[in-house]
């Protein structure tokens, strides 16, 4: 069995700061990590491999330094890593990104064997669109299972897979045919700690590095900014509200201040006191 896991290197954005004067994002010196959601996909893939045999290939599209994330994935136990990097990819939106990744997956198939399952995370913590998974599926004509919480059964001989999927208001149990694209839900497993052997292997491993051309992409107009139908026109800070908060300073908190706040709240929202009283009687 061959599984491809797509991972994205993202800024550890909790640490991103905005320049106080220019309002631009200051990326310098911001550490990068594997998109946390992708670790659930990677772990799910590794478990399937451990159970059924086969190999796991991790794939990322990004700048050359995205190699760090791939090496990290190898320390967790992935078997092979592919870096798709080219200046043509700069500025890709989700349509252009899924085009490039789908092409790379096709090339991975030709080179290392057709994948039975392609995994992505649910979404990223930077772009946060959750659109790349469905995008790859459509491009590659893979059946699509999003928000998967559990892989219930994989029957390689019959080429069937059964999963549980988070839907609105409940869980769907679905069965479909391989090959599939799965976007894995967060919190569904816990990433293993890599072994010493994997760490040593990862440090020395050769990362397969492909340009657009290497990945068989002929039409670079479908990549990067030019291949992206969405255009970011304006970036701006949210407006401060014109009416400032009514500030109450209390040191220390007392019964009177609490009563005063309750009065302020009831004074601030028409009808809420009556509704609460009514509700209270039914509680």
């Amino acid at each position: 069995m061959h599984i491809v896991v797509c991972i994205k290197q993202v800024p550890d954005s909790a640490q991103i700061r905005v320049h106080p004067v220019t309002n631009t994002i200051m990326r310098q010196g911001v550490p990068t990590i594997i998109n946390p959601y992708d670790l659930f996909a990677l772990e799910a893939a590794l478990r399937l491999r451990d159970e059924h045999g086969g190999t796991v290939t991790v794939l990322t599209m990004g700048p050359p330094m995205a190699e760090d994330s791939l090496r990290k994935a190898l320390t967790f136990g992935a078997d092979r890593a592919v870096l798709l990097t080219d200046r043509f990819f700069a500025g890709s939106d989700t349509l252009a990104t899924s085009f490039a990744l789908a092409q790379a997956i096709a090339k991975i198939g030709e080179t290392f064997g057709t994948p039975d399952i392609v995994f992505t995370g649910k979404q990223t913590i930077d772009g946060d669109t959750a659109q790349v998974g469905p995008g790859i599926a459509k491009r590659q004509k893979l059946l699509q299972l999003t928000y998967v919480s559990k892989i219930a059964e994989l029957d390689l001989a019959a080429r069937r897979i059964k999963v549980e999927r988070r839907a609105e208001g409940g869980v769907q149990v679905l069965e479909t045919r391989l090959p599939v694209l799965i976007t894995m839900l967060e919190g569904t497993n816990e990433m293993r700690r890599g072994t010493m052997v994997d760490a040593l292997r990862a440090a020395r491993a050769e990362i397969v590095t492909w340009s657009a051309k290497d990945a068989g992409i002929e039409d670079v107009l479908k990549c990067g900014l030019r291949g992206s139908p969405t255009v970011v026109k304006r970036v701006f800070a949210p407006a401060a509200r014109s009416d400032k908060a009514q500030m109450i300073e209390i040191q220390p908190a007392t019964r009177d201040t609490a009563d005063a706040l309750v009065a302020a709240i009831f004074g601030g929202i028409a009808g809420i006191e009556g509704d609460l009283v009514e509700l209270h009687q039914t509680l």
């Binding site: 300073e249 019964r255 009563d259 706040l261 006191e273 009283v277």
Partner: peptide, 29 residues
Amino acid sequence: FDFAHVGLVTDAVRFLPALTEAFSRRLSP
């Protein structure tokens, strides 16, 4: 406080129980 309507500068750990009590007092039949 840039987008709140009412701001209280105080220790929430101490204030929340007082506020809970104040609401209960005010709302009790």
